[in-house]
Amino acid sequence: MSIVVCLKWVSHPGEPHDSRFSGMSHADQSALEFALQQAESTGATVTAITVGPPGAEKVLRDALACGAHHAVRIEGPTTTSGTDVATAIADHITDARWVWCGDYSLDRGAGSVPAFIAAHLNAQQALGIIHASIEGDAVHATRRLDGGRRELLEVTAPAVVSVEGATARLRRATLAAVRAAASATIPVVSATTPMHRAEFMVRPYRPRARVLPAPEGATALERLRVLTDAAAASAARGDTVRLEPADAAARIVRALREWGYLAH
């Protein structure tokens, strides 16, 4: 059984062009920690993989220092579309039983790569996990849903799990491991399909402005509650429907438009 952890070399959002502030996101660190824990409990090996230029090897060396058994860098530009990254990774890990990812990267933040990898590998997916425990051959995971709700999942291999940054604290590498990892040879492979450089602006996440109706309430406190109580607000507009996937997707997009999350 093999375990793969996907790591992205990202810059700090405030210093996008300065490699001094680059490295693994907290989410990726959590993913690495879970991968290492799973390897310890199952006897499997962990392969750390990244897509990027030579500078991206920094995160692989960090992973090796922490205990990953292998590391692979897929040559690629710094900015690539999520689908290209997922394809490149999935093509190289066809025999992976478990794939751990951070839930989304610091610089782009779409969180789409784990889902695309799962689709390529035809594996189960448990994305945006806020709590995970490794129990035998399965992973018990808690997933964040809107409105403060939670989804409890029992995931079995083959599966892709993406975790949030606060789910685990990455272990500290020993001094000898850090020294050894610094001079380790990192295999570099080419992507099986051509990768396209994605052109986009790196900037802090700024959600779209949306119009909120004036809150109802006799007192300021009541109005504040109406405005800020997420659970009550989403419960009020929650809607459970049973639809075919295509119709369900269209319904979700329509709801997001109506609620002001998407531009019309």
Partner: peptide, 9 residues
């Protein structure tokens, strides 16, 4: 002695 595990150098 460093603050890393097995951190003696």
């Amino acid at each position: 002695r460093t603050d890393r595990p097995d951190g003696d150098l």
